[in-house]
Nucleic acid binder design. Structure first.
Length: 344
RNA sequence: CGCGGGGUAGAGCAGUCCGGUAGCUCGUCAGGCUCAUAACCUGAAGGUCGGAGGUUCAAAUCCUUCCCCCGCAA
């Protein structure tokens, strides 16, 4: 039986932690990775030290030849790739555009691991997009690459349920495990996989918008649930943030403390905010503990609380610029001067 | 040499400019009050102030140097 094809010459292209899992899995499954492409080590971080990608470090330690072109626009780079003579190329979170001339080179083409169920969330940031949208299920797509952005024919998919507690970081880890398993499965029966590929439906296409600094900024006028999802979607990187007393505060985790509340029905042991609330400008107000009267029952809330456009959020994991990351509880205990401030 | 913040009790912070008793909010432990409480009151334990030198009668604080943590930017 010819189930294991002649795929003993694989080129792997990837940069992030997400791709590293796939690379490791491919090698552990016994495939021969003959070359690794990853993004150029570049000055980054404090002091602009040269940073190698995790994939670079792994390949280096494993003795796999590494190549880091800036792009594939030159004939030289294309020919260099051709000279490897690879049977198939696997791409996962690489970060460079692969032109058609390159896609045409390997006999069995390019295969991509994408962190969503295509055609939902095409684009660069599918994981935060799924959380932000409140999706209850997402997954992995293994596809044949074509020249479009995540438009290739689908080989296989894997499902993953999003539990509401999950942050992008956790989801990304689980998806990378799933992706690693799926790519190995695909490579093991490569010819069959390629034959069974089917076109994407053009009906349910959505795009995952690029993440910007501004899209990570919290709008406290939104509901507590919306803001909670924003926080989860950008945790731990790059981190949802707000500004308080002129300083940037990142929020890595939060939970809805009260989904809905009549803003007049509460008191706080620390200070009386009724005048602020009457002005309807309470969104973003930070408190450290409060007692609410919902219907006829008093509800005691502890921890670091933030009023939203609708409801109250409990901030669980925060970090002020320049300080350590800590629980909201500890943070607000030490920074009582921030109680009663309005974040924005 | 990219810009910047920080290291003080188990946690989070103030005090540092201008040297002179180690302080705050919590937590912990013990007791009290209350119908009751994530409320309140009383008391206790817990620190070689990141390390090493130096100046001084005296250093958390001033000088030199080293280590560690973090934000921005890329």
């Amino acid at each position: 039986m010819k189930s294991v094809n002649n795929v003993d010459s694989i080129v792997f292209m990837g940069t992030s932690d997400f791709s590293l899992k796939a690379l490791v899995a491919i090698r552990e499954a016994g495939f021969n990775v003959v070359r690794v492409y990853t993004q150029t080590p570049k000055p980054a971080g404090r002091g602009y030290a040269i940073q190698k990608s995790v994939v670079y470090k792994y390949a280096e330690a494993s003795g796999i030849p590494i190549h880091c072109p800036k792009n594939f626009k030159s004939v030289e780079e294309v020919e260099r790739f051709r000279s490897i003579g690879a049977n198939v190329a696997v791409v996962a979170a690489y970060g460079l555009i692969i032109p058609q001339v390159l896609l045409d080179i390997p006999p069995r083409g390019f295969i991509n691991i994408h962190a969503s169920k295509l055609p939902r969330w095409r684009g660069a940031a599918p994981i935060p997009a799924a959380i932000l949208a409140g999706d209850t299920v997402t997954g992995i797509t293994i596809m044949k690459m074509d020249a479009g952005v995540d438009t290739g024919d689908i080989i296989t998919m894997g499902d993953l349920y999003i539990n509401p507690e999950m942050s992008s970081g956790q989801l990304s880890q689980e998806l990378s495990d799933l992706g690693a398993a799926k790519i190995v499965e695909t490579l093991k029966k490569l010819d069959f996989s390629l034959l069974s590929a089917r076109k994407q439906s053009e009906k349910d296409v959505t795009y995952a918008p690029k993440i910007t600094k501004e899209s990570c900024r919290i709008d406290w006028m939104h509901s507590a649930e919306d803001i909670r999802r924003t926080i989860k979607a950008f945790s731990p990187e790059p981190g949802a943030w707000t500004e308080i007393k002129g300083h940037r505060l990142k929020i890595f985790d939060a939970e809805v403390a009260v989904a809905e509340i009549d803003k007049n029905d509460y008191e706080s042991r620390n200070l009386c905010h009724s005048e602020i609330l009457h002005e309807n400008s309470a969104a973003g107000l930070i408190l450290d503990a409060a007692k609410f009267f919902c219907v006829d029952k008093p509800v005691h809330l502890s921890g670091m609380l933030a009023f939203c456009g609708k409801g109250v959020l409990r901030l669980l994991d925060v970090q002020l610029a320049g300080k350590k990351r800590m629980s909201g509880d500890a943070f607000i205990r030490g920074r009582r001067d921030l109680v009663g401030q309005v974040a924005g």
